[in-house]
Nucleic acid binder design. Structure first.
Lengths: 126, 126
DNA sequence: CATCACGGTATCCTTTTCGACACTATGGGC
DNA sequence: GCCCATAGTGTCGAAAAGGATACCGTGATG
């Protein structure tokens, strides 16, 4: 049960940094949010975009993001089920942060610093 | 021992976001880096700035940040010991990210969303 | 009839994280 | 002699995060 990750903050100025980090620190939240910047996505669409995440984890992270009012979940009562995820207004305010994060990751491509980026095979299946 | 937190990335564009997140996702890394933006600090100085961190944790996070080449550790061989920490050039490139994070945390003070911000003592009962 | 796709749940288990606490060495103050 | 501060280290154990796998109901397809 995801219960807030940090229970308390030390109210030094860094407090706000921690507070913000709290929302994107799940293992996959950053990527999920980043993908949703492009627009609404269905469950399996996200899953395909992030091959290494399991349903369980994806569901989990999605639920937490929803609880944090960063994304919105829309269920279409039809069969087969259809569920769409999109950013809320609040979620969209994270855009600058996400962009900054991506910019840093790209420029200072630390990916290659301590590991080799295992781009297993295909990049995107169209 | 700390070993890279994520072993692999899915090479979707969100990859870079994950890569960046990797460096600041430790429980205290964000705050530590943020405090170091102000300049060099000694060990116990950081400790006092973040009351809720233990030595063990602080040492640990500091070592990881050092391993990631984000901070620099300078030991003065004297007694009592004196050790100073400061950002490396690479660490300073994180500034925009940290700033964005803090700005978001401040504006969208989500601290109060799912928990009462236990700023040990006073909060604001809304 | 069997199978697939959809969007999940439930259960189990391993790994990782993190906090508490004790211990180190040295020199100074009382 | 005893305690303080500095900057750590080591061990223990609880809790949380995260991964693997199996299962659910339905409707269309083969």
């Amino acid at each position: 049960m995801p219960k807030a990750r940090h229970e308390r903050f030390d109210c030094s100025p860094g407090c706000a940094v921690e507070a913000a980090l709290q929302f994107i620190d799940g293992k996959w939240k950053g990527v999920i949010l980043y993908h949703l910047l492009d627009g609404t996505m269905r469950f399996n669409e996200i899953r395909r975009a992030i091959p290494s995440v399991t349903q369980r984890m994806l569901t989990n992270q999605l639920r937490e993001l929803e609880a944090d009012d960063l994304i919105e979940r829309t269920v279409y009562p039809q069969v087969p089920p259809k569920v769409e995820y999109s950013l809320t207004a609040r979620g969209r305010t994270l855009q600058p942060v996400l962009i900054a994060l991506k910019a840093w990751g790209t420029e200072h491509s630390g990916v290659a610093l301590r590991e080799e980026s295992r781009c297993d095979g295909q990049s995107k299946a169209a």
